[in-house]
Simulated scan of single mutants.
Amino acid sequence: MKPNIGILGCGWLGFALAKKMISLKYTVSGTTTTKANLEILKQEGINPFYVELFKEGARGHLIDFLKEVDVLVINIPPKREGDSTDYLAKIEQLYEACRIMHIDKVIFVSSTSVYGKLQGEVTEKTKPAPVTASAKAVLKAENLFVKDSSMDSTIVRFGGLIGSDRHPVTYLSGQQNLTNGDDFINLIHLDDCLDILTSIISEAWWNTLINGVYPLHPTKREYYCEQARKRGLAEPTYKKGYAGKSGKVVKARTLESLGFEFKKPIDTSGV
């Protein structure tokens, strides 16, 4: 019997994941912080729950939602840099609720931002070095679940997410004197994100750390200028870089070892 899936945070990624899981014949419950979206979730076959987390606790129906869940996908990143303290407190509240409800399988959607400003190749074995307050909070949130031996927790650190309706070049278009042109890109298409998350469940990739990044890393100058040209947009311009500085290249070594194949390239205008 397939497990019941709970997706905490049905935003851009979470909503797409819920629909994919339903197409694979899973029963899916999903949360939203906007009551007006409950009907939208219901129309897609998702069992809808209003849940809003605060540092003091939860508003809505968190416990009722967790009652329905065999596998919990946590997909609620910090909303902004100034949200970091509140964010960690919210995740702590969620973690305690998971313990009370005996949730024993968790996928935590994280970010490669936890690697901070490291240079060169970065793998799952690289010690994180978060710089921003939000990245530090995300790493602490990861560890809440990883350190609990009563839970099977898998952490997925995604790079920058792109999709058919979402690409950074649309807001970089025409910008001038950008300073990070020699940094390498670390991106991943939404479709590959969904395949990774569904594979964790179907293939039982538990107690694992995964970097979710497509294995192509041109510089930002090369990539975004090319993408702008392909879309007929004004190209961004970059200042001359500094010798020896090229940012980090995030490698998905865990996925390689598991035999995962990326299917959605990030180097074409049709993403």
Rank of each mutant, 00 (worst) to 15 (best):
residue 154 T to C: 02
residue 268 T to R: 13
residue 108 F to G: 04
residue 117 K to V: 03
residue 231 R to K: 15
residue 165 D to W: 06
residue 37 N to M: 02
residue 184 F to C: 14
residue 9 G to C: 03
residue 189 H to R: 08
residue 35 K to S: 12
residue 270 G to P: 04
residue 49 F to C: 11
residue 201 I to T: 06
residue 85 T to K: 14
residue 192 D to E: 09
residue 205 W to T: 07
residue 158 F to T: 09
residue 44 E to K: 12
residue 19 K to R: 15
residue 269 S to R: 11
residue 209 L to M: 13
residue 83 D to V: 12
residue 144 L to P: 05
residue 255 L to W: 04
residue 198 T to A: 04
residue 193 C to L: 08
residue 10 C to P: 11
residue 82 G to K: 13
residue 126 T to I: 11
residue 87 Y to G: 02
residue 56 E to R: 14
residue 237 T to N: 01
residue 184 F to S: 13
residue 14 G to L: 00
residue 162 I to R: 01
residue 212 G to Q: 05
residue 214 Y to D: 03
residue 127 K to Y: 08
residue 184 F to I: 08
residue 263 K to Q: 14
residue 143 N to P: 05
residue 2 K to S: 05
residue 24 L to M: 14
residue 71 V to Q: 05
residue 47 N to G: 00
residue 48 P to Q: 07
residue 105 K to N: 12
residue 149 S to C: 08
residue 68 E to I: 01
residue 159 G to I: 09
residue 1 M to G: 13
residue 211 N to H: 11
residue 101 M to Q: 14
residue 124 E to Q: 12
residue 40 I to C: 05
residue 190 L to D: 04
residue 80 R to M: 13
residue 76 I to S: 06
residue 61 H to R: 14
residue 194 L to I: 12
residue 186 N to C: 10
residue 13 L to F: 13
residue 160 G to E: 04
residue 156 V to K: 03
residue 191 D to R: 14
residue 85 T to N: 10
residue 191 D to F: 08
residue 216 L to E: 13
residue 123 T to C: 09
residue 262 F to A: 02
residue 36 A to S: 15
residue 142 E to V: 12
residue 203 E to Y: 08
residue 118 L to A: 14
residue 168 P to Q: 04
residue 261 E to P: 03
residue 130 P to V: 05
residue 112 T to L: 06
residue 261 E to V: 15
residue 254 T to F: 04
residue 84 S to E: 09
residue 237 T to C: 03
residue 168 P to E: 01
residue 167 H to Y: 09
residue 20 K to N: 09
residue 54 F to C: 02
residue 135 A to T: 08
residue 124 E to N: 08
residue 122 V to H: 02
